[in-house]
Amino acid sequence: MKNEEYRNVWVFSEVKEVALELLSLGRQLADSLGVELGALALGNGAEAQASEYIAYGADRVYVGQHPALSRFSVEPYTDLIAGLAGQHRPEVLLIGATKRGKELAPRVATRLGTGCAADCISLTIEGESRALQVERVVYSGNALAMLTYRNRPQVATIPPGIFQRREREENRPGEIILAELPIREPRTRVREVREKEKGSVNIEAAEVVVSCGRGLNHPEDIQLIRELAELLGAEVGCSRPIAADLQWLSEDHWVGLSRHKVRPKLYIACGISGQIQHIAGIRDARIVLAINQDDAAPIFQSADYGIVGDLYQVIPALKEAYQRIVKRES
């Protein structure tokens, strides 16, 4: 099959809110290609979702309602999505990069004999070839890879939360199509589903650290830091004065030259001035976000992102934004 025989952009996520984000991205790509935007709605309540998807930018929604689709399972979902894509030949297929989306996309792509790029944070169309160009973070966050595709469909997974959904449009026209395709029963069976337990303090192994310094006024205020940490699945860290002098936290939390050297993906420094003895402990943090009310605090020179402001206001605002964007609670 030639590449020109593929048209349209499709999006899918098993999480509705992620699908809405993908619709906004998909809409942009479809418009720049001058094609339609399709979406897939599978499982329980798919039909109700379909009209939502249209309101958020889809021109056409394929609905699958087989009992085997009622809860996400990679094999039947692959059967259906790859089956539909084989029939209708979209040129771009965007899938939400949740853990489930990430196990689905490569399977779908492989069945279609095409390529998939994971966790794309930027997607553009190259004019002539209509090929998708994507960027993704690689080498444990040290580099950005630029990839493109030779085959169609061009499958990409998109991390949740980085594209904003569009405004909802009432009465947007769109078509809903019922998909009837052979689907096999999954060969994996779910025995049980439960909540994750919280691990113990090991700040050196933590992926995210929320750390506090003398910018905190009272020992009780550690709670503010704890809440943010809990929300982000992070460990709590601190500067030397908090552990050594004030003893508001134990030495397990002390970050810096003379205690724990941390190497998280994300280090959030709240009310820490950023003296070199502290900075030496966060050298290997991939991204540092600093919150400090003093515009001239040295921490900002050692940070990737900085918010100048009172931590007592900034932290609640961060929590609110995280809840809204990631947890999708209003």
Binding site: G141, G161, I162, I307, G309, V314, L318, A321, Y322, I325
Partner: peptide, 19 residues
């Protein structure tokens, strides 16, 4: 504003793949 800065922070961190 605070809310804008906070929102940008979360989106940038998601883009970086660190959240």
């Amino acid at each position: 504003t605070l809310a804008e800065a906070a929102e940008r922070a979360i989106r940038e961190l998601l883009r970086e793949g660190v959240l």
